[in-house]
């Protein structure tokens, strides 16, 4: 009587060292990834009509599933000086992380600061800044001001000074 099965695959005859097989679930393979984070700076609006009280603000939209963020979806408005104060607070909160620069202040461009091109350049710069900063793992978990700046309805710099 033959002891070996002639139809046995070669694979099963080779003794494998038991490798811990990690099987992925369907959800893990095809579900929403855990690093979902979309931050946009859009819809610049210039308020006021008296030249002394005019200013431009921008909308920050955030969609995410990262638990460090308070809300999964948020939409808030911020102006340049808010970004400026936020950046200063961020720099003081961390010694290890290099915080990128904001687009330039409009001191040299003061007469043009409500010009469409200037505002668009600024919007792009602010978006780039926020994408880099919000994606940083040490800032996401370590900075108290980051999540507030992006998601709180009102930005109050005094809470962090």
């Amino acid at each position: 009587m033959p002891t070996a099965n002639p139809f046995q695959s070669f694979d099963s005859s080779i003794t494998h060292k038991p490798i811990k097989e990690h099987k992925q679930t369907f959800d893990e393979l095809y579900g929403e990834p855990e690093n979902f984070l979309e931050v946009e700076v859009i819809k610049p609006v210039t308020h006021g009509n008296k030249s002394s009280s005019m200013y431009t603000d921008y909308e920050i939209v955030c969609r995410t599933n990262i638990p460090a963020f308070k809300k999964r979806f948020s939409r808030v408005r911020r102006r340049y000086s808010d970004f400026d104060s936020f950046r200063k607070i961020l720099e003081s909160e961390t010694t290890r992380v290099v915080i990128p620069k904001l687009p330039e202040k409009s001191l040299l461009n003061y007469s043009n600061r409500f010009n469409d091109d200037f505002i668009e350049e600024r919007r792009k710069g602010l978006e780039k800044f926020l994408i880099v900063v919000s994606g940083h793992p040490l800032l996401q978990t370590g900075s108290k001001s980051l999540i507030s700046f992006i998601q709180d309805d009102v930005w109050d710099k005094n809470k962090f000074l």
């Binding site: 990690h22 099987k23 992925q24 679930t25 893990e28 393979l29 990834p33 855990e34 690093n35």
Partner: peptide, 8 residues
């Protein structure tokens, strides 16, 4: 490319 949880 980006890996996800459970990937080897």
């Amino acid at each position: 490319g980006a890996p996800v949880r459970g990937e080897t």
